[in-house]
Structures are given as C-alpha cells and as structure tokens.
Amino acid sequence: MVVVITSVIAVLGTLLGAGLSHVLQSRTAARGQDFARAERLRQERIDAYCAFGGALANYRRGQLDYWFPRHDRRPDDSTGVHELRREAQRLRAVAMEALFRVELLTDAPALVTLGREALEAVATITTAADREELAGLRERSRTLIHDFVTASRPHVLSR
C-alpha cells in the first residue's frame, strides 16, 4: 500500500511539474512573441516616418524648383517648367504614398493630422505670388515637417 501511495504521489508530482512547466513556457513564449511583434512595429514605424519626412523634404524641393523659373524674370522655357511641374507632381505622389503608410502604422491621429498639414503646407508653396510670400510658405512648411518628425519620436522609442 505504501508503494502504491508513493507511486501515485510521484506520478501526481510529475504531472504537476509538467503542467506548471508548460504554463510557464507558454507565458514566456507569448511574451517573446509580443516583444518581437512590438519591435517589428517599431522598426516599421521608424522606416515609415523617416520615409515620409524625406518624401516631404523632396517634395518641398520640387515645389521650390518649380516656383523659381516661373517667377524669375527670365525668358519662359515652357518645356523646362513643364518638366519641373511633372517632377513636383511625381514627388507629391511619393509623399502621399509615404503618408498612407504612416496612417496604416500609427495609432496616433494627431500624428496623421500633422503629416497632412505638412503635406498641404508644401503644396501651397507654388501659390506664392512673390519672394516675400514664398519665404513665409517655405518657413511654414519647414516648421511643419520638423514638427512631424518631433511628434513621431515618442512613437518609435523603445517601450
């Protein structure tokens, strides 16, 4: 009888140990998967936010490249201006694509709003009537691009 009780206790102890080990390993694996998922999302956000900031800077440059030949008092080179306009449009499409990626990856509506404001500020550069107005629009677009980058920083810091 003592042998049977000892054997039952040994079997129950083994089962309890195996069950407890399974629960602990499952929790550890889940934590590891959660960490890996969070790290992948962080890396994706870094890539998306950097790509959008860079696309905005390139679009801004394209808008300025398009503005200057149209407003300088030089003979009109309509072919060159047309090509610059097409390039600015292409750069806008790249920036919008990057913004869509930001919208998909962020959980912060305020960040998306900042991104849209920055994109719109860059788009208004070509509406400047003179260099003074252009300077204000350039400064506003530069500030909003930097504001977006600054606002995105907390979303990519390790948590």
Rank of each mutant, 00 (worst) to 15 (best):
V2Y: 14
V3M: 10
V3P: 09
V3E: 10
V4W: 04
V4N: 10
T6W: 09
T6C: 12
T6L: 12
I9F: 13
I9M: 04
A10C: 08
L12W: 04
L12A: 11
G13V: 13
T14E: 04
T14Q: 11
L16E: 01
L16T: 06
A18N: 05
A18E: 01
G19Q: 02
V23K: 08
L24M: 01
S26E: 14
S26Y: 09
S26P: 08
S26D: 13
T28W: 14
T28D: 13
R31P: 08
G32P: 11
Q33F: 05
F35C: 06
A36V: 15
R37I: 03
R37K: 12
R37Q: 07
E39S: 09
E39F: 10
E39L: 09
R40F: 02
D47V: 06
Y49K: 06
Y49W: 13
A51I: 06
F52D: 03
F52W: 04
F52E: 02
F52L: 01
G53R: 14
A57L: 02
A57Y: 01
A57T: 03
N58L: 05
N58F: 00
R60Q: 03
R61E: 05
R61W: 04
R61P: 00
G62M: 00
Q63N: 02
Y66F: 09
P69C: 04
R70L: 09
H71E: 10
R73V: 08
P75I: 06
D77H: 14
S78A: 09
S78Y: 05
S78W: 06
S78V: 14
T79L: 14
H82P: 02
E87C: 01
E87Q: 14
E87R: 04
L91Q: 15
A93H: 03
A93C: 00
A95V: 00
A95H: 00
M96D: 01
E97Y: 04
A98D: 02
L99A: 06
L99Y: 06
F100N: 13
F100T: 14
V102K: 08
E103M: 08
E103Q: 13
E103S: 13
D107R: 15
T113W: 03
R116F: 09
A118L: 08
L119V: 09
E120L: 07
A123Q: 04
T124F: 09
I125F: 01
T127P: 01
T127K: 13
A128Y: 00
A129V: 07
R131A: 12
E132Q: 15
A135L: 08
A135I: 00
G136P: 10
G136F: 13
L137Q: 06
R138N: 06
R140Y: 09
S141E: 02
L144D: 03
L144K: 12
L144T: 14
I145N: 05
H146E: 15
H146R: 15
D147A: 15
V149P: 04
V149C: 02
A151W: 08
S152P: 05
P154V: 00
P154E: 04
P154R: 05
H155K: 10
V156Q: 07
V156C: 07
V156I: 13
R159Y: 02
